[in-house]
């Protein structure tokens, strides 16, 4: 069994519902889609039990109608898991993963500024990467946002 298959087996044994949404894309690349309710247990299992101890970054995506967030987790073996969660655009609320990865703070702030994500539990701090006077309801990386040339 390849290392990817072992990981898949571990995950499916623990979380039956993942059997449909885990895909081994290629050697060292696995993708998983998960619902909001199941996000934390799966994330915790990956980070703590399966030793995916490195969070590369978090990618926000505007898939019109919903906002998706992909957590890119890597293990020492080089295997990388893309854990994706999709949320409705009018309530893109997530819980912070900083208890697992303190470094996630800056990735989460980016999602707040550029996509309008709401991250529960994010410690107070400066916004990143936009200026303090950037309007709070303007999210540049949302598809409908266009730079106003006259601004």
């Amino acid at each position: 069994m390849t290392q990817e298959e072992k990981i898949k087996e571990s995950l499916v044994n623990k979380f039956n519902y993942l059997s449909v949404s885990i895909k081994i894309v290629r050697p060292r690349r696995i993708s998983i889609e998960v619902s909001l309710d199941n996000f934390e247990p799966v994330f915790a299992y990956l980070a703590r039990d399966l030793q995916f101890s490195h969070l590369c970054t978090i990618t926000g995506l505007d898939e019109p109608e919903k906002l998706s967030f992909i957590y890119h987790l890597a293990a020492d073996s080089g295997v990388l898991i893309n854990l994706k969660i999709a949320l409705p655009k009018n309530s893109p609320t997530l819980k912070t993963v900083t208890p697992y990865f303190p470094g996630a703070e800056i990735y989460e702030r980016e999602l707040v500024d550029l996509f309008g994500a709401k991250i529960e539990g994010l410690p107070s701090g400066h916004r990143y990467p936009l200026t303090d006077d950037w309007p709070v309801d303007q999210f540049p990386l949302r598809k409908e946002w266009k730079a106003d040339k006259n601004a």
Binding site: C56, T57, T59, L61, D62, G103, E105, I106, Y107
Partner: peptide, 15 residues
Amino acid sequence: ERVKIRAPTLANVQA
């Protein structure tokens, strides 16, 4: 559709 870049320095800010 989307390009996301995470440069190395950002990962070392907490450190």
